[in-house]
Design a binder for these strands. Structure first.
Lengths: 131, 131
DNA sequence: GACAATAGGGATAAATTTCTCCCTATTTGA
DNA sequence: TCAAATAGGGAGAAATTTATCCCTATTGTC
């Protein structure tokens, strides 16, 4: 049986908060979160913009991950009382401290792009991936 | 119906390989992988040592994530033909290039430990977490 | 009037990851 | 002889995350 607290799944396994890596995992462990943060940092503030930047994420999940980032105080959400509705996200001061870290991760991925593609793709049967 | 290729789940949704962050996600997106890499880097080479360093991971999952890291060529596995069995992991040259990135992540987590604990813990009902 | 764009949620299914339990095999030590 | 340590896998369940489908509401445009 699934139970939810508001929009959030009620976890049965409590988080581990032993070291810095644990803590980071709690706030960044989500399939799209790093990219969401990065695109917000790049100035794509509105949900619809973010969705266009990351077309693979469904709108539903994008909303949920944004809510989590907001609840972790990495981003803030501003609502404009206009119609049609307008919402803008931006990084908080706290969220901004994460940018150099995300950048380091992305740069490593860019630097070793070829190697990474090689080791990732070799796990898939032929013809399932078209580079 | 679940199907597995050897030890690995046969994915139905293919990976996204658009940018560096996607690529990194493919090899580091696992609950324990960053810590596994970090402890190997610190010199804890044997599976049993790693399990003692990370008691929260089950032995089964530790093995699986080690296999994935090996298949992604971030670590290498050396078997000593002795009894009882002895296995040692170490970082590959490629894996070593990741250490500064993991360190940056961990340092950020350490630096903002208090803030992170605060925003994480506030999502849990009272008395479920004992700091 | 029909339709797109805007933001977002409910319900539910599917995918994926992680966990639990149990089993193999060998050597050392009590 | 029995237990512990070593490395590791199978089967299946549970937990968690992500995806899909559909709905609300308003304004502007064709």
């Amino acid at each position: 049986m699934l139970t939810y607290i508001c929009w959030m799944y009620e976890r049965k396994i409590l988080p581990y908060l032993n070291c810095g890596l644990d803590l980071v995992g709690e706030v960044l462990y989500g399939k799209w979160k790093l990219r969401i943060l990065w695109f917000i940092h790049e100035g794509h503030k509105r949900p619809s913009e973010l969705q266009r930047k990351i077309p693979d994420v469904s709108r539903r999940v994008l909303n949920i991950q944004l809510k989590e980032l907001e609840s972790h105080e990495l981003v803030s959400r501003k609502i404009y009382p206009v119609m049609p509705p307008k919402v803008e996200y931006k990084l908080t001061d706290f969220g901004r401290t994460l940018i150099p870290v995300i950048q380091a991760i992305g740069l490593w991925g860019d630097k070793y792009e070829e190697k990474l593609k090689e080791v990732i793709i070799k796990q898939f049967p032929e013809a399932t991936l078209t580079p």
